[in-house]
Amino acid sequence: MTEETNTDTPKGERIAKFLARAGVASRRDVERMIEEGRIAMGGQPVTHPATFVQSGDIVLVDGNPVGEPERTRVWRYHKPDGLMTTHKDPQGRATVFESLPEAMPRVVSVGRLDINSEGLLLLTNDGELARRLELPGSAWIRRYRVRVFGVVDEKRLAELIHGSEFEGVRYGSIEAGLDSTKGDNSWLTVSLKEGKNREIRRVMQGLNLHVSRLIRVSYGPFQLGTLKARELEEVPGKTLREQIPGLAAPVRRRTR
C-alpha cells in the first residue's frame, strides 16, 4: 500500500475517497471502519486514512473484495414512515436498505429522514457524491410538506427566515408558510438548506406546534413527484449531468 509520504510513485486515490465512490460508505464512515480494522489492502490491514489505492491494488472490506467504482448513479426513493435510514439498526428495526430490490448495487443515502418521516430520499452508489450533496455548500433546498396540530401564528412562522433557537440549540434560516387549516390541524410548506437532526419537529415545537406528519417533496432539483411509498426510480444519466455539474468519472485502474 502507498502512504502519502511516498513521493517517488504516483499517489493514486485516497482509500476513503475510493471506497466512498464505490458506494461502501461515506469518507467519515470509512475512517471509522479503518479504526475498527475492517479494511485491508495488499494482504495487510489498512491503519491510516492517508493510504492510497493504486493500479492493481485489491481492497477488502470485511474480507470481501471491493470492485471497481462504477459510473455514478442516483435513485429517487419514496421512503415510508417506519423505516430507519441506516444500513443496520442496533434495535433491529426495519431499514430503507433492507427494502430495496435484491438487484440494487450497494448504495448510500444523501442525508437522512428520521423513522417517522416520509418522502423523497436520494440514494447513490457514490458515497463521495452523497457527502458533497449533503453539505450546506451545495445550497440545495430541501422542501417539506408538514402537518401540524395547534394554532399557527403566521407572524412567528415568517420570522423563522431569520433563524431561531429552541432549548439552547440555534437553528438556521427556515422558510415556512401556511397552506391550509382545518380545525386544529394545518398544512405548512417548509424549506431549508441545512437541517440538523429532527430540526423541523423541534423548531415547530418551539412554536407550540406538534408535527403529526412530515413529507419531503424535493431535494435540490429532484422531486418526489408521483412516486408511491417504497417505489424506486433511477435518475437518467443525462439529467444527472445537467443537474450536478462536474461529476467525477470513475478512475480506471488496470489489473496487474
Rank of each mutant, 00 (worst) to 15 (best):
M1C: 05
E3A: 10
E3G: 11
E4T: 12
E4D: 13
T5G: 01
N6F: 10
T7Q: 09
K11S: 00
E13M: 04
E13V: 14
R14Q: 13
A16W: 00
K17T: 03
A20P: 02
V24M: 03
R27I: 06
R32Q: 15
M33N: 01
I34Y: 00
E35A: 15
E35R: 14
E36M: 00
I39G: 00
A40L: 14
A40T: 07
M41C: 01
G43Y: 12
Q44M: 06
P45C: 08
T47V: 14
G56I: 05
G56W: 05
L60I: 03
V61T: 09
D62M: 04
G63W: 13
N64P: 04
N64H: 15
V66W: 03
G67T: 13
G67P: 10
P69W: 02
E70F: 11
V74N: 02
W75R: 07
W75K: 03
Y77R: 00
K79I: 05
L83T: 00
T85M: 05
T86V: 12
P90S: 13
G92K: 08
T95Q: 09
E98A: 09
S99T: 10
P101W: 06
M104N: 04
V107G: 01
V107A: 05
V108P: 00
L113Y: 05
S117F: 00
S117G: 02
E118F: 13
E118M: 11
L121M: 07
L122M: 13
N125V: 08
N125G: 03
E128L: 06
L129S: 04
A130Q: 04
R132Q: 11
W140D: 02
R145M: 14
R147W: 15
R147T: 10
V148P: 05
V152R: 00
K155T: 11
E159M: 12
H162Y: 11
H162E: 14
H162I: 02
E165H: 15
E167F: 08
G168S: 10
V169C: 09
R170Y: 08
R170F: 11
Y171F: 11
G172L: 07
G172V: 10
I174A: 01
I174G: 01
G177F: 04
D179G: 08
T181P: 01
D184S: 15
W187V: 03
V190N: 02
V190F: 01
L192E: 02
L192K: 00
G195E: 05
R198N: 12
E199I: 02
I200G: 03
R202G: 06
M204P: 08
M204Y: 07
M204Q: 08
Q205F: 09
S212T: 15
S212V: 15
R213N: 09
I215H: 08
I215P: 05
I215F: 08
R216W: 00
S218C: 13
L224D: 05
T226E: 15
E231N: 12
E231K: 07
L232I: 03
E233N: 13
E234A: 12
P236G: 03
T239C: 14
Q243F: 06
Q243D: 14
I244E: 06
I244P: 04
A248L: 08
A248C: 12
P250K: 06
R252N: 15
R253I: 10
R254A: 15
T255R: 06
R256G: 09
